[in-house]
Nucleic acid binder design. Structure first.
Length: 292
DNA sequence: ATAGAGACCTGTGTGC
DNA sequence: TGCACACAGGTCTCTA
């Protein structure tokens, strides 16, 4: 589900609710999500104050006062919501039926009476624990490439990563060890903006000398822009993604390619039709008329 | 080493 | 109404 802009939006929504609060109790309603919770996960998080929320790639991070860090991934269908003790938002009739909403797997009970609930129907998400001191060398973190929002992403960096790569641009951009945080939606959108086909080999954007082509430099800018635009819009709400507040993101209204199979290309004067192809078992949406 | 398929899991929408 | 099937924002693991 969430790519970087959605996780960033979740972080911003939860921060004022969680930062500075103590976790009184960490309630696990099942022993695992995608992976088992680490040994003692509840015991090690309970009684600790949350110093700050953060994000790295698609991981939501909670720094605790004892120097530990909760690493949380939302998978495809994970979401957080908060309650202040009132009936659970998002399922107003649950009380009448005497039922809990399905798939609420983790509940953080905070001091002051609030709760933060993690819901994840498909359970592709997970939570684990590490220490701030060894965070960068954690196996999940050390393999990540650069953030698309930071200065480390530039055309030279991508040229070095793409040189000699026979894989299609689509898969090269989804590779989290190159750029960390892009997913299916924003890769499709960035490629549409750059007029580049998802099928093109990544190495074709690199000169023999190893320098980036102009088109690669332009792509770099479009990646940064589409991520920034999506964060500004509060992410994209398809199916089940909502912000922690329950509000919907609205970047999905700005999609030019994603999910638009059969629709006319939005580029002025193009006249093409958006197509859907399958690459590495995932849908790619693009305009064969103007993306080459 | 690296690219692609399959796997994990549940829900929803579509077509018969 | 029911059923079968395709598809979904991710990413790890296995096979060539």
């Amino acid at each position: 589900m969430p790519e970087l802009p959605e996780v960033e939006t979740v972080k911003r929504g939860l921060a004022p609710f969680m930062e500075g609060r103590k976790i009184l109790r960490t309630e696990l309603r099942r022993p695992d999500l995608r992976f088992p919770f680490p040994e003692g996960f509840s015991a090690k998080t309970q009684g600790r104050k949350i110093i700050a929320l953060g994000r790295r790639s698609k991981y939501l991070l909670a720094d605790l006062e004892d120097g530990s860090v909760i690493i949380m991934h939302l998978g495809m269908s994970g979401s957080f919501r908060t309650t202040g003790g009132e009936p659970v938002a998002g399922d107003a009739f649950a009380h009448e039926r005497g039922k809990r909403p399905a798939h609420d797997h983790v509940v953080f009970h905070l001091d002051g009476g609030g709760t933060v609930i993690y819901n994840d129907p498909r359970r592709f998400g997970f939570m684990t624990l590490t220490d701030r001191g060894s965070f960068e060398s954690h196996p999940l973190i050390s393999v990540l490439g650069v953030e698309p929002t930071g200065n480390a992403l530039d055309a030279d960096y991508l040229a070095a990563a793409f040189a000699g790569k026979k894989s299609p641009l689509k898969s090269a951009l989804l590779d989290q060890s190159v750029i960390a945080g892009l997913g299916n939606i924003y890769v499709c959108e960035a490629l549409w903006r750059a007029r580049l086909s998802p099928r093109r080999k990544a190495a074709t954007l690199v000169r023999k000398s190893g320098a980036p082509t102009e088109r690669l430099a332009a792509l770099t800018g479009h990646i940064r822009d589409v991520i920034a635009d999506a964060i500004d819009a509060g992410g994209s709400s398809l199916r089940d993604y909502v912000q922690a507040s329950g509000e919907l993101g609205y970047f999905q209204h700005s999609f030019a390619a994603y999910g638009r199979e059969g629709e006319p290309c939005a580029r002025t004067g193009c006249g093409g039709t958006i197509a859907r192809i399958v690459q590495s078992n995932r849908s790619s949406f693009y305009c064969p008329g103007c993306q080459h």
